[in-house]
């Protein structure tokens, strides 16, 4: 076992520690290859942000939010910890379960896997921007009608993913929906209701509900 593991927490490599202070445009390269350091990024002429907190502006649900984050802060943590937008849930925290799904420039995105600084200048829609408990969007209505939720912790992620999915697939088959929403996981086992809800929401959306 390595020295690092002996003296630090489990598991070994901390993604956040690794990302701390990377050049913004170097993030993707750094993630993929693990070779570019902040110094190298600077030499390449890439703008360096951090490692301390930097001011950013995020456009969320049509509103501009100014906040100050370290470059290593994910979009998810910025939403939840800085802006108190807690509808997006932190579950796997590494792009597997979909509980943190938000829509960025029209595309569903795992907000745990995007840095807050990367999201600057993009249009972000979270669950809070889709509808309210009193005025639900068709997907939310269908989730309630078909009891597509139990503990509900995966639900916001599913609702966001499903809303984005129906935008590009307005007439899905059952198989389309199973594939299209395959990036979201539920533990209580609400998939039976979710399948009914997706197909029903597609109908409701077309019906202009």
């Amino acid at each position: 076992m390595s020295e690092k593991l002996k003296s630090s927490q489990v598991p070994g490599v901390s993604r956040r520690g690794f990302l701390k202070g990377l050049g913004v445009s170097g993030v993707a390269t750094g993630l993929l290859t693990g070779t570019e350091t902040p110094t190298e990024a600077a030499e390449r002429g890439s703008p360096i942000k951090g490692p301390g907190e930097i001011p950013i502006t995020l456009q969320i649900n049509g509103k501009k939010h100014q906040l100050s984050v370290e470059p290593r802060v994910t979009l998810l943590d910025a939403l939840r910890n800085r802006l108190d937008l807690t509808g997006s849930k932190k579950v796997c925290d590494r792009g597997t379960c979909g509980a943190c799904t938000v829509i960025v420039d029209g595309q569903p995105v795992y907000s745990c896997s995007m840095l807050a600084v990367e999201a600057e200048g993009r249009a972000i829609t979270t669950i809070e921007g889709l509808g309210t408990a009193e005025n639900m969007n068709p997907v939310q209505k269908a989730f309630v009608k078909h009891d597509a939720q139990q503990c509900g912790f995966c639900t916001p992620g599913f609702v966001v993913a499903c809303t984005a999915f129906l935008k590009t697939n307005p007439n899905p088959t059952l198989e389309d929906a199973r594939t299209g929403l395959g990036g979201n996981l539920c533990r209580c086992g609400t998939y039976a209701g979710i399948m009914d809800a997706v197909l029903d929401a597609a109908k409701m959306t077309k019906g202009g509900a």
């Binding site: 939840r80 807690t86 509808g87 849930k89 639900m136 997907v139 939310q140 939720q149 509900g152 639900t155």
Partner: peptide, 19 residues
Amino acid sequence: RADGPVKAAGVARYSFDIN
């Protein structure tokens, strides 16, 4: 489900969500 709408709208505050 009585709390279906607040869960589906993402406004149900779980313990993890308490700030």
